[in-house]
Design a protein around this nucleic acid. Structure first.
Length: 416
DNA sequence: TCTGGGGTCCTAGGACCC
DNA sequence: TCTGGGGTCCTAGGACCC
């Protein structure tokens, strides 16, 4: 069997680039990519963090994930723009559309990253390197943002290659190039080696990806279990999952939020819990799924997290049923201490078609009709058009977590 | 570093069954 | 009541990714 050729395409500073392109199209005079700028949450709120940064911002040692407060200390003239997820989804989709003519096999890995299978496509667009250069240029010229493209014989090598020098670059990482291009890198640079694993490896005197590759996998298994075998395979460039363009079935979904002040009592906690339940159940219904397991997670003011989960007798997507269970779980989990962060997650999902009504359960039909009516009204008139009365004058948002519905952003009209 | 929000997968321990 | 072993499911927590 011929060797596969996989591309990994990664948008450079995605949110910031997309924001910059949109601003320029709207007549802005400065390009956010040319000045110290970041995309981040609300700077006034305690939970605002840096989601994306420009290269000039990087020169001030500003890091993704740090607080806006701390970023501002490093660079007082920093420009902070709020995120606009709808815009980013449109940009991502435009890129997917452009790429679909290069290969029928495309798999989104996140909003700003995707894999493309270029195996046996040489006769259409040239060698892999030629095709990648062509794609890089076309995205830049028609969509206005730059990408890095990594080329390899599997998804892992392609992904590692796209991380090399940035921005606006094409790199290869074929098996014969591994010792020279990948092995000298610090072990923490390897995909799936995060801070905890890197720390454990370093404590065993394994510092580079090459050293990891040369280590006895059984030794790794001893202290990292199956994850040790995974990263050993990756360090040796071994990975063989296919590029799949069919969406995999969702395993679970959840919403969580950091509250701008600590929750102290049951009444306020239940309001936030209800708001999160509304959001997550709306998403569940939109996906035409039912959930069996509900999990409520809490984080106290010392950043200690804990959770409780429970199983429903029957899968549901009904806000009221989920909320009743969530309240029960919250009461079980809560240690009576101030709460900074709350989340609700739904798992063990089944498709709505398989849902069976039980003769012995309360008829969910009235709730179903109510949920559907509320969904429809909110879809048509906006999220705030219909609100539970307990939220009126409460100081709490009736929906929490998730992406707030926004207007469409008219841009790149020739593509969209 | 006063530390978001969306996911996936794995593991350990306990319950429960044969 | 104590002993054993294997299998599965559930739960809580932790690691990783973007």
């Amino acid at each position: 069997m011929a060797e596969k050729v996989i591309f990994h395409i990664d948008v450079n500073s995605a949110y910031l680039s997309w924001e910059a392109v949109y601003a320029l199209q709207q007549g802005a005079s400065v390009d956010l990519r040319d000045i110290p700028a970041v995309i981040g949450g609300n700077e006034k709120k305690r939970n605002g963090i840096v989601l994306a940064k420009s290269i000039p911002a990087k020169k001030y040692n500003i890091k993704t994930g740090e607080t806006l407060f701390s970023a501002r200390l490093k660079c007082p003239q920093l420009v902070v723009a709020p995120p606009r997820y709808n815009l980013y989804m449109q940009c991502s989709e435009a890129m997917g559309n452009l790429l679909s003519k290069y290969s029928p096999l495309i798999q989104f890995f996140s909003i700003d990253e995707l894999f493309l299978d270029y195996t046996n496509m040489d006769k259409h667009f040239g060698t892999p390197l030629q095709a990648a250069e062509k794609i890089r240029e076309e995205i830049k010229n028609t969509l206005g943002f730059t990408v890095n493209i990594g080329i390899g014989s599997n998804k892992l090598l392609a992904k590692m290659a796209s991380e090399f020098e940035k921005p606006d670059k094409v790199h290869t990482l074929f098996p014969e190039e591994i010792p020279k291009k990948m092995w000298p890198l610090a072990v923490g640079e390897l995909f799936m080696v995060g801070s905890k694993t890197a720390e454990k490896l370093q404590s065993k005197n394994i510092h580079s990806i090459g050293e990891l590759a040369q280590t006895d996998p059984q030794f790794l298994y001893g202290f990292l279990k199956s994850h040790g075998l995974l990263v050993w395979n990756y360090a040796n460039g071994k990975e063989d999952s296919p590029v799949r363009n069919e969406g995999v079935l969702m395993k679970g979904l959840g919403n969580s939020t950091t509250i701008s002040f600590d929750l102290l009592d049951l009444e306020d906690s239940f309001k936030v819990l209800l708001a999160l339940t509304e959001t997550v159940c709306t998403r569940l219904r939109r996906s035409e799924l039912h959930a069996t397991v509900i999990s409520v997670s809490l984080k106290n003011s010392s950043f200690v997290s804990y959770s409780h989960q429970g199983t429903l007798p029957h899968a549901t997507n009904c806000t009221k049923i989920v909320f009743e269970k969530a309240k029960e779980l919250f009461v079980k989990a809560w240690k009576g201490e101030p709460i900074r962060h709350m989340g609700i997650h739904l798992t063990k999902l089944i498709e709505s078609d398989f849902h069976q009504l039980s003769l012995f359960e309360p008829d969910p039909f009235p709730y179903k009709t109510l949920d559907k009516a509320v969904d429809d009204i909110r879809l048509r008139y906006g999220n705030t058009s219909i609100v539970r009365s307990s939220f009126l004058h409460s100081g709490f948002s009736p929906q929490q977590g998730g992406v707030i519905r926004e207007d469409d952003y008219p841009m790149m009209s020739s593509i969209l």
